[in-house]
Amino acid sequence: MGRAAPAAAAGKSGNWKDLRARVLSAAVLVPCVALCVWYGGLLYGALIVGAMAGMAMEWARMFGFGLETRRGQLCMAWAACVGIAALAGHWGGALLVMAAAIVLGPALWAGQVAIGCAGLSLLWLRYMSEPGAGVVLFLVACVALSDTGAYMTGRLFGGPKLAPRISPAKTWSGSIGGLGCAVLGGMLIAALLPGALPGALWRGAVFGALVAIAAQAGDLAESALKRARGVKDSGTILPGHGGLLDRFDGLLVAAPMAALLSLGAAGGAAFWYVGLR
């Protein structure tokens, strides 16, 4: 009995042991990403292509092909080529390059497709929709808010596990908290962006929720992959977060969803105006 309280306290404090590293990483990462998104051009293109290459490397490493191997190097270069082709305006060619990655084998090809679709979607949303920077910021912010909200509320309130066989740390309270944060963030961003149309608030809420659900699905999918491969993190490049895949796994699902929705918006408008003609 006498040892139970300290043990419980230690376990509770352990839930927050990575908070400082996460905050410090975010303090560097968020301004850099926001600057690249807002500035656009080659700066944004380089960010996306670099992220695609880095995530492809982490995916290959999870299957035993590190950067020192020929196949690992090829995975990294292949993903970069997909992004570069899109930046050059060859969208069809980018899709063909991505499809041709089947020569790497089914497991590595799946990574090329998942990462390639997300990267191409982020490029498409920035350069082919209006307002490009605002659209990407809405998407990235809602994904980040969902992740941060889930982290904070899950550790504050705990409760039943969301998917204990896939990711024992995730809880229903965290999932709901992340959803709520994304909804509030979506409402705020959609209403404040230049040229906001009537209904921006409720549309921001609805599509903020959709982005959060997609992001959490991507998070669970990556967790399932890591569990199947027997790894804790996809990498170590981001202290407190792990690898690029660990940080941006939500975008692997959310970005393609947003790009598909944008096809239904009139005149290349933001994807949360889908259906308006």
Rank of each mutant, 00 (worst) to 15 (best):
W202V: 03
G158K: 07
R229I: 06
G93D: 06
R155K: 15
A60V: 09
A77N: 03
A110M: 12
R155D: 06
L87T: 11
A80S: 04
H241F: 14
V30L: 13
S234V: 03
A254C: 10
A266Q: 14
G199D: 06
A209E: 11
P131V: 02
G132N: 04
G41S: 10
L251N: 00
W172L: 14
G250T: 00
I115D: 00
L245G: 00
R227A: 01
G92C: 13
A107K: 13
G89K: 06
Y44R: 02
M187E: 15
G230R: 03
S129R: 14
L35W: 13
L260K: 03
T148Y: 10
Q73F: 01
G11V: 05
V37F: 01
L252N: 01
P168G: 07
D219S: 11
K161E: 11
L251P: 02
G243P: 00
G66D: 06
M55Y: 15
A4W: 15
A224V: 06
S13K: 14
W78T: 01
A228M: 12
A228G: 12
A34F: 11
A169W: 10
L263H: 07
G218F: 10
W91D: 05
A228D: 14
V33G: 11
A269R: 12
N15F: 13
Y151T: 01
A265C: 02
G230P: 05
V37L: 11
G54S: 11
G267V: 03
R247W: 10
M187L: 15
V30I: 15
G105P: 05
A265H: 02
L238S: 11
A217Y: 01
I84A: 13
L188S: 15
G14K: 08
A215K: 08
W109L: 01
E68L: 13
R71V: 12
G230C: 05
M52E: 05
D246R: 09
K161I: 02
A254P: 06
G89Y: 14
L137G: 06
G204A: 11
W91V: 07
A34R: 03
G45R: 05
A27L: 13
